[in-house]
Write a protein that binds this DNA or RNA. Structure first.
Lengths: 193, 193
DNA sequence: AGGCGCATGTAAGCCGTTACATGATTCC
DNA sequence: GGAATCATGTAACGGCTTACATGCGCCT
């Protein structure tokens, strides 16, 4: 029996907090887990079956709405333990894939106007996410459970705080880039002839 | 002929700056492009063939060291234009995959000591990257070309600046998390009985 | 003599996305 | 009546990683 995939650990992380159906897990993989990890339902259902085969989750049939029986999954003690073990094993840094930066790395190919448009578009993407995170974080700051390091809400709060901080920096950075583009354009060549 | 994949645009971005062999492109996909996009050589060679079939790059044989002929690739005018067009088409936000945050989201499962170890490990990863970026950025700040928005070095400088800023925030965030863990532990339950 | 860097490619397999498929209930 | 939500699954395909394969020149 091979160890769970990264997706498997993501699902265990959700189920360690509370039991859920595959459908609910798929929804939470969009939000709030989607803030740092994503998966579609077509990935979730087979992975749940694999986790169950490994004894890390277990299901009971609860029969709700739908053509097939509805299954409510829960993490087993072995599942929570596997997750705990994974948390403390050291891992090498993951490859980064940042499409916005990839585009901005070629900003030198664009005229002043298009460049500013590209920067503004990237800013809008990050600003929207920032607003999401801030709204979500606001629901947690008053929660006394979010102050207990052994309560899931604590982890939710601190990871959200990280999301807010990093998105804020991206927005600031893109604002800085816009002024830098204008400052350097003014100093150098006066645009296309 | 389908439009290039994201990898195709990454390679075009490299070749728009200067011609290179597949091997050199693979190296640059580790560093400095690897700061925001990655690819192995086994992905690079077939993609170059596809780009060439689409008329976006072209190669000449230069014969260096190796069992097969060495090919030096360059972007064609059509290739640069395809890249330019892609830069200004709007795209939906990409899914995020952040393994460190995924792990930290389950930090509530750990005892105080293991939690601090996990946070410290994540901090070390980001701190190492930050040092890389800062070293690279230092080589650019004195370059007068990096002040010209139409010069590739300008784009290198501003994207690196973004990398430095975001990594710095991650390190600060993880330091904050460590103090938060200790502050909240002290206020609440006094650890395992 | 062995290992590393240069240099290019192919093959197997995993992971993830998109699309297909089914069917109940609730809201407009 | 039609769309959206609930709910679960399969199939085809593409992207990416890992491993296999080859072979020269340089350094120790």
């Amino acid at each position: 029996m091979p160890p769970p995939s990264l997706l498997g650990y993501a699902l265990l992380a959700l189920l360690a907090r509370r039991p859920a159906t595959g459908y609910e897990l798929s929804k939470r993989m969009r939000r709030p887990v989607g803030y740092f990890w994503t998966a579609r339902h077509s990935q979730v259902y087979p992975e749940l079956a694999r986790l169950e085969a490994g004894g890390l989750v277990r299901h009971e049939v609860v029969d709700g709405a739908g053509p097939r029986p509805t299954k409510r999954y829960a993490a087993t003690a072995a599942g929570v333990e596997a997750l705990r073990t994974w948390l403390v094993t050291d891992m090498e840094p993951q490859p980064v894939r940042d499409l916005e930066t990839l585009r901005l790395w070629s900003v030198w190919l664009l005229d002043a106007e298009s460049a500013l448009t590209l920067v503004a578009e990237c800013r809008a993407v990050h600003a929207e996410r920032l607003a999401d995170y801030e709204r979500e974080l606001a629901t947690l700051v008053d929660d006394p459970q979010a102050k207990d390091p052994r309560h899931p809400q604590f982890a939710s709060r601190v990871t959200l705080e990280g999301g807010v901080r990093s998105r804020r920096v991206f927005v600031d950075w893109l604002d800085w880039m816009a002024t830098e583009l204008q400052r350097c354009s003014a100093a150098g060549a006066p645009g296309p002839p």
